[in-house]
Structure formats: structure tokens, C-alpha cells
């Protein structure tokens, strides 16, 4: 019974969330375009699937992943855990950024795995695969974005631990983006920029935010209000770099393959 009322409550939330979007879409469809879409029934059924799916997904996350992930973020950043990992004989005041290695590993793995499960990234990957005629693999894109998020979040955790100002990291990231833009294959650039924004939604944001707040609350000298934010920015910057790198790598391999072919035919 409790389960049912919880499902109902989440579904209502999702409906409220989807309602303005549906109103805009169907409002424009009927009032401005004045035409009935060819397969209206199927599209409405699709919206219903999206609604039910998203509600179940969010509810499930709320029940299993979020409490566990938040708890873990708390426990891993707890000074007593760091102290135990660092070994006896050192005092808490002399915490070194290296003592937080489990946090970086956790940040990397949780960033990677939540990005693989991110529904909006799956959506963009499907579309990119279709539009590129298969040149961009669904998994190639998803893995490289996930790798970017993983590296980004670990680096962001390191920043919170050492307390550097965030903008130097982000600005240097931008500089690398600009350099890569000038040398990466043209076709990938818009998609790479897009993948920065899509990575951080339903699954990743709550966990990453918990990690950032947990860290900034427990590391001596950090202010959660200032240092707790910014992990999401790291998670949206690094996929841009990794997706462009992925395209450069595939281009390089294709070139290498062609050269080998040429060599073997000329022999």
C-alpha cells in the first residue's frame, strides 16, 4: 500500500514536470501548425511510456541509489575513515590530499557508472548514431563521455580537498577546449559541446552534489557554501574534451589503417 502511494506521488510530480512541455508541444501543434501528427495515437502512447518510465526510474533511484550513494559519500569523507586509511600515528590536522585516495577512486567510478546509466545521454547517443550513419558508435560515445565525467569529478574532488579556486581549473579547461576545437574533426564539434550538457542530469547530479557537500563539510578549512558547488561544472566540461579526443583517436586509427592497407598493397 505504501509502495502504491509512493508511486502515485512520484507520478504526480513527473506529470507536473511534463505538463508544461506537453502543453507547449501540443499547443503549437494544434494552434499554430494546425495539423494532426500522422500517428498521434502512437505518440501519445510514447508520452505515456516516458511518464511511467521516468516516474519508476526516479522512485527507484530514491529508494536504492540515492540513500546508499549519499551514505557512502558521507562515510568516505568522514575524518575518522580518512584517519583510519592514513594509518595510526598521524594527527587529523595534518591531512594530506593523498589521504583522500578512496574518495577520488569513488568519484571516478561513480561518475563513470552513473553516466553510463544516464537516460538523456542514451537519447543523444541513439540520435548521433542514426544521424552519422553509424560512424559514431553508441557505445563509443557513451564510454568516452563517461570517462570524461569520471576524470572531471575526481579532479573536482581533488580541488575541493586542496582548496584551489575553481575558476582556474575551468578556465584552463576552456583553453584546452579551444585548442582541441581547432584540430578535432569538424563533424564531432557540435556533438562534443552537447555532450557536456547532457551528462549531468537525473542520475549524476544528486550523487555528485552529495559528494561535493560531504567533502567540503569535512575537509578542514573548506566552506560548503563556496567549495561544495562546482563538481557539476567539472562533470560538464571534461566530456567535451574526451569526446573530441575520441573523434581524434578514431580518425587517427582510420588513417593508420589506410596507410597500412596502402603499404600492404604496394609491397
Amino acid at each position: 500500500m505504501e509502495v502504491l502511494s509512493a508511486i502515485l506521488a512520484v507520478t504526480m510530480d513527473t506529470v507536473m514536470d511534463v505538463l508544461p512541455i506537453a502543453a507547449i508541444i501540443f499547443g503549437f501543434q494544434f494552434a499554430v501548425l494546425r495539423q494532426k501528427p500522422a500517428n498521434l495515437g502512437e505518440i501519445l502512447a510514447g508520452f505515456a511510456w516516458v511518464l511511467v518510465g521516468l516516474s519508476l526510474f526516479l522512485l527507484g533511484l530514491e529508494w536504492c541509489l540515492f540513500p546508499l550513494g549519499r551514505l557512502m559519500a558521507e562515510q568516505l569523507t568522514d575524518p575518522s575513515f580518512i584517519h583510519a586509511a592514513q594509518g595510526a600515528g598521524t594527527s587529523l590536522e595534518t591531512i594530506n590530499w593523498r589521504d583522500y585516495y578512496w574518495v577520488y577512486i569513488f568519484a571516478f567510478l561513480i561518475g563513470f557508472s552513473t553516466t553510463i546509466a544516464e537516460p538523456s545521454l542514451i537519447a543523444v547517443a541513439i540520435k548521433a548514431n542514426e544521424v552519422s550513419g553509424g560512424a559514431i558508435g553508441i557505445w563509443g560515445l557513451r564510454l568516452s563521455v563517461a570517462l570524461g565525467v569520471a576524470v572531471g569529478i575526481s579532479l573536482g574532488c581533488y580541488r575541493i580537498v586542496v582548496g584551489d579556486p575553481i575558476h582556474w581549473y575551468i578556465i584552463s579547461g576552456y583553453v584546452i577546449v579551444v585548442i582541441q576545437t581547432s584540430i578535432a574533426p569538424k563533424m564531432i564539434i557540435p556533438l562534443a559541446y552537447d555532450s557536456g550538457g547532457v551528462t549531468t542530469s537525473t542520475v549524476t547530479v544528486p550523487l555528485v552534489a552529495a559528494l561535493g557537500l560531504g567533502l567540503s563539510e569535512t575537509v578542514p578549512g573548506r566552506n560548503p557554501l563556496i567549495d561544495g558547488f562546482g563538481l557539476i561544472a567539472f562533470a560538464s566540461l571534461f566530456p567535451i574534451l574526451s569526446v573530441m579526443a575520441y573523434a581524434q583517436l578514431s580518425e587517427f586509427r582510420a588513417k593508420l589503417g589506410r596507410r597500412q592497407q596502402r603499404n600492404s598493397t604496394s609491397d
Partner: peptide, 19 residues
């Protein structure tokens, strides 16, 4: 729930949102 939800969402995506 997460598994079912993701499945339904992707299904609805291809049937409703994209078209």
C-alpha cells in the same frame, strides 16, 4: 523500479519524443 523505468523511458523516447 530503476530497470523497468529506464526500459519504459527509452521505449517511449523512440515512440513519442523523437518523432
Amino acid at each position: 523500479f530503476v530497470v523497468l523505468g529506464l526500459t519504459f523511458f527509452i521505449h517511449g523516447l523512440e515512440q513519442g519524443l523523437f518523432p
